[in-house]
């Protein structure tokens, strides 16, 4: 029974709570690095490594870290792992470092990682946290790969660098194509979710770790205040 529970921690991130398509987190790298399938895999693997390590350490330290400095402590730990991964990639896979560029160190502000730390690793034992991180990482990689394959195939007519299509629709590897393909994928995910009778996310904020002190709630609050002031 316990094993079944653990397995669920792993699989939920891949389909049911896919961080990109269902929770709509980590949109920046999803749009930025998916101009080719191999980039998408590089980003996915790097982020998964950081996610698993930070989840493990945060879960280990969850009883030691004072609640008040929780977020800065998490950010420091995550930033540490991101830097380690960055150095390792630079040393052993320089080509990936070159193609990911600035987006590699920016994994540190990827909301998926801080989100999982805050929502899962900070409250659960080590093993489930590692599996949760691994599952979320695989889900993230899968979504990125999906975007990468579509954009590379349509935009440069190739797949993993191999030319297979004679026509190229350049716009798909340019920024507008990123937004468009992502929109279409979300639509597909929403459609499948509604068919399964699940609630659909309407903003990217619902799963965001900072949602409590931000976004919609804040917006509504300010809008109300603004109208009050106007009155």
């Amino acid at each position: 029974m316990a094993q079944k529970g653990l397995l669920k921690e792993f699989t939920k991130g891949i389909v049911k709570e896919n961080p990109v398509l269902c929770l709509v987190l980590g949109t920046c790298p999803t749009l930025a690095v998916t101009t080719s399938a191999s980039n998408a895999i590089g980003m996915g693997v790097a982020a998964t490594a950081v996610l698993v390590c930070s989840n493990a350490v945060i879960s280990l330290l969850r009883k030691v870290i004072p609640d008040k400095v929780r977020i800065p402590a998490y950010i420091t730990i995550i930033a540490g792992f991101v830097s380690v991964v960055q150095m390792l990639v630079k040393a052993f896979a320089p080509a990936i470092n070159d193609s990911l560029g600035i987006y590699l160190p920016l994994i540190v502000v990827n909301c998926i990682i801080l989100g999982r730390a805050e929502m899962f690793a900070g409250k659960n034992p080590v093993l489930p946290s590692i599996l949760d991180g691994l599952g979320m990482g695989v889900g993230f990689t899968a979504a990125l790969l999906c975007m990468g394959i579509i954009r590379e195939l349509l935009g440069s007519g190739s797949l993993f660098g191999m030319q297979i299509m004679p026509v190229q629709i350049l716009i798909f590897i340019l920024p507008p194509g990123g937004f468009f393909v992502f929109g279409m994928l979300i639509m597909l995910a929403n459609k499948l979710n509604t068919r399964a009778g699940k609630k659909v996310k309407t903003t990217p904020c619902d799963g965001c770790p900072m949602a409590d002190n931000c976004a919609e709630k804040t917006c509504e609050k300010t809008a109300k205040e603004a109208t009050l002031n106007a009155d």
Partner: peptide, 16 residues
């Protein structure tokens, strides 16, 4: 099925 986030992203594509 386009309501909400998908149409927002398509609009973002046009702005970009």
């Amino acid at each position: 099925s386009l309501k909400g986030l998908p149409i927002t992203l398509v609009a973002a594509a046009l702005v970009s």
